[in-house]
Amino acid sequence: MQEKPEVRSNKDRTEGTRSALLAAARQLFSEKGYAETSTPEIVRAAGVTRGALYHHFEDKVALFRAVLTEEYRAVAEEITGLANSVPGSAMDALRQGSRGFLKAMAVKGRVRIMLRDGPTVLGQTELDKIDRDTSADTLRLGLTAAMEAGEIRRLPIDALTAQMSALFDRAALAVSEGDDPDDHLAVLDAIFLSLK
């Protein structure tokens, strides 16, 4: 008896094509950077046609935005996973979240995509929107929880979140260039403690 070949639905084929494009683009963007990656390279690596690329994404910027959004989601999952892994205070969650962030940012190519090319290609306003949409603003929520618990003093939350976020990004860049992550975590921990 002969087995019937598996028939994939249009939805499965569509999702498969989109996934192949995202995976190929992510690899090329992480290895070569946005500017040095061409759409013909992406479709060749994904094993699809240019028509398939433009069916799913308006242009290279839209494809990059989709890749970047996936990176933000992955980082948010790592932060949330570690922050929620240890019962304790809001400050403990912030400290664990710091570790989750640096661990997530150590994934090959992530710093290049998120911190080097992201601001250039999309601009900081768009990155902030993606961050809010994908991570539910984990840092802001953690800082707010620590303020409400009386673990840190009340400060303007928008300014505090922006400045702490910049510190985290700078730490990730430095670690990607060879700095010891423990050194940066020690400094971030001290900064959190100084907010009391």
Rank of each mutant, 00 (worst) to 15 (best):
A104Y: 02
T120S: 04
E6L: 09
G97H: 00
R116L: 07
A76W: 00
A83S: 06
G88K: 10
F192I: 04
V67N: 03
I191D: 05
R110W: 09
V75W: 00
A186K: 03
Y34C: 06
A74E: 14
L22C: 13
R154S: 13
M1N: 13
L167S: 10
A74T: 07
D182F: 01
S165F: 11
T17Y: 10
T134C: 15
V187E: 08
A45N: 12
V86S: 14
R99H: 08
A46W: 10
R170F: 06
L115V: 11
L195M: 07
S194L: 02
A190L: 11
A186Q: 01
L143N: 00
E58K: 06
A174M: 01
A172F: 00
E71H: 13
R112H: 10
L141T: 08
A172M: 04
M164V: 13
A145D: 10
T125C: 12
S98G: 14
R44V: 13
L82C: 08
G51W: 06
K108C: 08
R99S: 07
F29T: 08
A62D: 08
D183W: 02
L28Y: 01
A66D: 04
L173I: 05
R13W: 12
S98L: 09
I152Y: 05
L28H: 04
I113E: 03
V107H: 03
V43D: 02
L193T: 12
F192V: 00
L102D: 04
A62Y: 12
D183Q: 04
K196F: 11
A172Q: 03
T49W: 11
L94E: 08
I157N: 02
D169K: 04
F57V: 06
A106H: 05
K196G: 14
V107S: 04
M91S: 15
V61N: 07
L28N: 01
